[in-house]
């Protein structure tokens, strides 16, 4: 549905130039929900704004549907944009217009006959659950309601693609979930391709089919959400996973109170978490295990967990424990070794 071919974007200012995007190749399938995650400055916002050419690439091609946007003259580009809806972090509604008038704006812009507006607006407001707010002004709405208006507005001209630029980043967690549910529903009902960018792992986990992880203007990992997050290849991806699996850090206070003995941090991913690794460890290696702190969460169908354990014994016991855990597919860090001092 959307193809980016060797796309780069260089921003020039008087201090020099910044490579916001660096040779991106990306293909987004029809009907999927595609997530792009990255920290601020990674270039994700620039990337999504390329997809309707709000930002023109310095080099490369942007193709949406059958149209090569980068080759269109201005008038035709405007026409093509009507089929690409966009939702914004700060909603960008017109406060001078009522909810219904805001939703009608894209219809006016596209030159849809006025008599058709009311029916279409009603339909859209029903879809996003705001039929009773048609005559309210945006200032009278909550953040979540404003974003619903934003979504209704983006859908007005029956787009094939919906671009979401941090659509939930200004919302509280509960509202975020309700907006994500709405996006998922729209995706299923209308068969719409959705591209969303976010810095929240939760958003990716909840609704995305595929994900791209971005860093320094490049895509560093790409694939099915389950696949990418069950076998993360980069530290950045690992950090995003820890957003939903909880903190991987042990409190300094706890660390100080811990007596002698081996202290291990075990990170479970996928299958390892669902097996009785620790009880097997006790049985097979014959060690005593004290669980200091731990957390296991599920992300889609994969389990993720971090477990801090303490194992009393000598260096030999420590070595065998670490070896056993590694064999089971657990990622082990030695925080404190019996030989004095920790690895970290």
């Amino acid at each position: 549905m959307i193809s980016l071919k060797n796309v780069s974007k260089v921003f020039k200012n008087r201090f020099g130039s910044v490579h916001a995007l660096d040779g991106i190749d990306l293909s987004i399938n029809k009907g999927e929900i595609f997530g792009i995650i990255g920290y601020s400055g990674a270039g994700k916002s620039t990337l999504v704004r390329l997809m309707n050419l709000l930002e023109a690439p310095t080099t490369g091609d942007v193709i949406v549907g059958d149209t090569r946007l980068t080759q269109l003259p201005p008038g035709q580009l405007r026409k093509a944009r009507r089929k690409i809806g966009m939702v914004f972090q700060h909603f960008n509604l017109l406060w001078s217009r009522t909810v219904a008038e805001n939703v009608a704006l894209p219809l006016e812009i596209a030159g849809v006959p006025k008599r058709e507006h009311a029916a279409r607006v009603k339909e859209l407001l029903e879809l996003v659950g705001l039929a009773d707010k048609a005559d309210a002004y945006p200032s009278q709405l909550s953040g979540g309601q404003k974003q619903r208006v934003g979504i209704a507005r983006a859908l007005a001209n029956h787009p094939d693609v919906l671009l979401c630029d941090e659509a939930t980043s200004a919302l509280d967690p509960k509202t975020t979930d309700s907006i994500l549910d709405l996006l998922k529903e729209i995706n299923r009902k209308l068969g719409l391709t959705i591209v969303l960018i976010t810095h929240e792992m939760h958003v990716i986990e909840k609704i995305c089919d595929r994900v791209a992880v971005m860093e320094s203007g490049r895509i560093i990992e790409l694939g099915d959400v389950v696949e990418v997050f069950s076998r993360p290849k980069t530290t950045t991806t690992r950090q995003f996973i820890s957003q939903v699996t909880g903190s991987e850090q042990l409190d300094d206070d706890v660390l100080r109170q811990i007596g002698p003995g081996t202290l291990l941090r075990c990170t479970f991913l996928g299958d390892a978490a669902s097996q009785a690794v620790i009880s097997q460890l006790v049985k097979e290696v014959g060690v005593e295990v004290t669980i200091i702190q731990g957390q296991i969460k599920r992300l889609k169908e994969i389990a993720f967990g971090t477990l801090y354990i303490q194992v009393p014994g000598d260096i030999d016991v420590e070595a065998r424990t670490v070896a056993y855990l590694k064999k089971q597919g657990v990622h082990v860090d030695v925080l404190q070794s019996v030989e004095g001092g920790g690895a970290q």
Binding site: R78, K79, R81, R82, F88, L105, A110
Partner: peptide
């Protein structure tokens, strides 16, 4: 942002 939203809708 509002101007940008209008541009994304294809406004002249």
């Amino acid at each position: 942002g509002v101007i940008e939203a209008a541009q994304s809708m294809g406004a002249s």
